[in-house]
Amino acid sequence: MMLDMQPGQKLARGVARHLWAHGFVSVEEFVPARGLRVDVMGLGPKGELWVIECKSSRADYQADSKWQGYLEWCDRFFWAVDTDFPTDLLPAETGLIIADAYDAEIVRMAPEDKVAPARRKKMMQKFATDAARRLQALRDPRV
């Protein structure tokens, strides 16, 4: 139910819908490596890997000290924020998505820095495994 969602989860939902409209699939709260957890990992139709960090407030952004560690795990890195967020705080060399619970819009495309082939293969396998485990858990919570 939407009322039970936290502000960041609402942003992630809108981002996932927007990505879907562009042929991407996504996993929320994806762990690319131990100690890291990205808000949304998008997998594009050509194997693109995008990380989207959802920030619901200035304090939420300022408390995030790990985001630069996500860069090596994706081809493009974006921030997703709502229309009231002070976007001048966000680094200009990153992508920017304006989102709400229902949709999103990419307002600044992130620069591309392609993931190495071996890491891409590992990430795609992890993405598929995580997505399949989550689906199985929905189908059969006792597993």
Rank of each mutant, 00 (worst) to 15 (best):
A92W: 04
A118M: 10
T87L: 03
K122W: 07
A118T: 13
E112L: 07
L96H: 01
D82Y: 12
E112G: 00
D88I: 12
R108M: 12
Y102I: 04
A110Y: 10
G95Q: 00
F127Q: 01
T83V: 12
E105L: 12
E112T: 14
D100T: 13
R108E: 13
I97E: 02
A104S: 08
A104Y: 01
E112C: 06
D113A: 06
P91E: 13
A99K: 08
R120S: 07
E105I: 14
E105P: 00
Q125R: 13
M124G: 00
K114L: 11
T83W: 09
D82V: 11
R120L: 05
M123D: 00
G95T: 03
A110V: 08
A110P: 13
E93V: 04
P117L: 02
E93S: 04
A116H: 11
T94C: 15
D88L: 14
T83N: 08
A101V: 05
A110W: 10
I98K: 05
L89N: 07
A99H: 05
R108I: 11
A92R: 12
L96D: 03
R108K: 15
P91K: 07
A101C: 05
Q125I: 03
M123Q: 08
D113H: 09
P111V: 04
A116D: 10
P111F: 04
A118N: 06
